[in-house]
Amino acid sequence: MLEYVSGIITFSLIYVIATVGLAVFTGFTGLFSLGHAAFFAIGAYTAGILTYFYDVNFWAALAAGVAVSSLVGVLIGYPTLRAKLRSDYFAIATLGFGEAVRVLLENLDITQGARGLPGIASETTLPIVIVFTVLVLWVARNFVHSRYGRAAIAVREDFVAAEMMGINLFQVRMRSLVFSAGCAGLAGGLFAHYVSFIQPGMFTAALSTQLTASVVAGGMGSITGPTVAAVLFVAVPEALRMASMWRLVAYGFLLVAIMVFRPQGLFGFREISWQSCVRCFRKKPAAAGGGAGQ
């Protein structure tokens, strides 16, 4: 039982890492990606192949997974972001990219096609995942609260005005895309060395959709919101496993409920922070109307 729970926590956190990356991209630049499973897969396969066939050290393999998926992020970002594709067209481009990567994995020799890679060394443990999750959350928060994060938000809010502030749209979007691709790659590497078996069927558009759904449900423009949503989206279907066929219904219902009752996402633009927790437990300052900070 304990193992089962720790397994769910590990899975949740691996998804959190990928979701936080996507939150930095979608939530802060306003572009939707429906192909992030591809970055996840590239990280998983790169790291997996390196340890499986070449006996590369686990950490080096993880780093390589991050590097390769970031690089692929640059390659896919260059034509799509340069063309200033509108949000929906960009989403379609990434959808195509995601499927292309999956088909490629199914047909390459090194990936062993649809059979996948069985028996990858089991290296990922819960403490490792926790450390990486904290690290990614910390870096994402730093990014968002820096001038680079603000530039991304400016682009999301109004790109015409952002350009007048001297912000290069392409650069800003590329930076966020590469960051999110790197996070997805890291999550993929951890995933491959946790489940010990990967095959192309694990990285379908359904995974991309789940990641994007976590970001939207958690709140565009929040880091902690998507984090909570990512955990929910892994944990809730697990918790409902005994209800077998009804769990997907409940899952869908949850999504619809969020869209109806919290269209801005669970957290909207807000973040959970130490201060907000303290504020929650204290009495609200009367008539101060908030904003007493600083």
Binding site: R150, A151, I153, A154, E157, D158, A161, A162, M165, I167, G221, F269
Partner: peptide
């Protein structure tokens, strides 16, 4: 304006 941001953040950008 960057509508969802605070007044300060608008100028900070």
């Amino acid at each position: 304006l960057f509508r969802n941001l605070t007044v300060l953040d608008n100028v900070r950008i």
